[in-house]
C-alpha cells in the first residue's frame, strides 16, 4: 500500500479538485483521506454518506471551580498566555487563549482548577461515489489544529487500506508549512505538489518543498493554470529540474475546474475534453512514480 499526499503551500491552486479527480480515477483501489480538516471541501465533490462518526478529543482546557477558588491569583501569575483574566472579581479562563498546559492547576493551593478534555471536532468514515471509502473530519470552530486530528484521519485511512488490501491511500493535505502539514506529510510514499505560475505560487512551492525535503519524500509537481504566466512556469520547471522533482503535468487555465465544482463533480466526470485526458495521464504518471 502506498500513500500519496497532495499539498500546495498556497491555497486556490486546484489541489482539492485534482485530488478528488485522482480518487475518482483510482476508484475502488484508492482510500481517500481529507486532511485539510481546517477547511475540508472534498466531500462536496465525492459526496460521502457520513455513515460513521466519532468525536475527537485533543488537548485540555483549564476550568476554575469558583466555589473552591480563594482568589489568590497564583494561576494568573504563572499563566504565560494571559488566559486567566479577572472578570468582576473572579478568575475566569479564556478558552481562546488557554493552551491547556495545566500549569495553573499544578500551582492552585485549593485544587480549584481541573483540566477538561477538549473536543476539537468530529471524524467520519464514509462510503463515496467511487465505490470506495473516505476518511474525513470537521475541526471545531477556533479549535487547535495541532495536527492530531490530521494524524487520526490518516491513520484510520491507512488501517482501512491495509485491511481491505487497497493499493493506495490518497491524502488531500493541509495548507501552510506548520503542524497540520507536517502531520499530513509524515509517512508519505510520494508527494504531489500542486502549484500555479504566479509569484506567490512559486514562493509557496519553494517554502513547502523545503519541508518535504526534510522528510526525504520523493515528489512530483503539477503546474495548474500554466498558461497564465509563461515566464513563471519556466522558472518553476527550472526549479523542478534542479530539485529532481518529477514534472507531472502542465494544466491550462480552465474554468471547467469551477464548473465541475459548482456541479458537485470531479473534473474527470464533468468534462470530456483535453483536461480530462491530461488529468488521467497525470494519475498514471503518479502511479508509475510511486512504484
Amino acid at each position: 500500500m502506498k500513500e500519496i499526499v497532495v499539498i500546495s503551500g498556497k491555497g486556490g491552486t486546484g489541489k482539492t479538485s485534482l485530488t478528488a479527480s485522482f480518487a475518482y480515477l483510482g476508484g475502488k483501489d484508492v482510500i481517500v483521506a481529507d486532511c485539510d480538516v481546517d477547511a475540508a471541501d472534498m466531500h462536496l465533490l465525492l459526496q460521502p454518506d457520513f455513515a460513521n462518526s466519532d468525536d475527537f478529543y485533543s488537548g485540555e482546557l483549564a476550568y476554575i471551580h469558583q466555589n473552591e477558588c480563594i482568589q489568590c491569583g497564583k494561576c494568573a501569575d504563572v499563566c504565560r498566555f494571559d488566559a486567566i483574566p479577572v472578570i468582576k472579581g473572579r478568575y475566569i479562563v479564556d478558552p481562546l487563549s488557554c493552551e491547556g498546559c495545566g500549569y495553573c492547576a499544578r500551582v492552585c493551593p485549593t485544587d480549584a482548577i481541573t483540566n477538561k478534555d477538549l473536543n476539537v471536532g468530529k471524524w467520519y468514515v464514509s462510503s463515496i461515489k467511487t465505490g470506495s471509502t473516505m476518511v474525513h473530519a470537521k475541526l471545531g470552530i477556533g479549535a487547535d489544529n495541532s495536527g492530531k486530528l490530521v494524524a487520526k484521519v490518516k491513520s484510520e485511512a491507512k488501517d482501512i487500506a491495509e485491511e481491505e488490501r487497497k493499493d493506495f491511500v490518497i491524502v488531500d493535505g493541509s495548507p501552510g508549512v506548520g503542524c497540520p502539514v507536517v502531520s499530513s506529510l509524515s509517512g508519505a510514499s510520494f508527494v504531489v505538489l500542486v502549484t500555479e505560475p504566479s509569484v506567490s505560487g512559486l514562493h509557496d512551492l519553494k517554502r513547502v518543498y523545503e519541508l518535504v525535503k526534510k522528510f526525504k519524500i520523493k515528489a512530483g509537481c503539477i503546474i495548474n493554470k500554466s498558461d497564465i504566466n509563461k515566464n513563471v512556469t519556466a522558472e518553476i520547471v527550472e526549479f523542478l529540474k534542479k530539485e529532481n522533482i518529477v514534472h507531472i503535468a502542465n494544466l491550462p487555465y480552465d474554468e471547467n475546474f469551477t464548473k465541475a465544482m459548482t456541479n458537485g463533480q470531479t473534473i474527470v466526470e464533468y468534462s470530456d475534453n483535453h483536461l480530462k485526458e491530461l488529468i488521467t495521464d497525470s494519475w498514471d504518471k503518479i502511479k508509475r512514480s510511486v512504484n
Partner: peptide, 27 residues
Amino acid sequence: PPGTSCPVIEATKDADFIILVTEPTPF
C-alpha cells in the same frame, strides 16, 4: 492566515472589523 483554527483566531481577535474574502463557488 487561511482556515478557522488557532492562527486565524490569534490574527483576528483584536480586530475592529473583519473582511472575509470568498469566491462564488461551493468550496
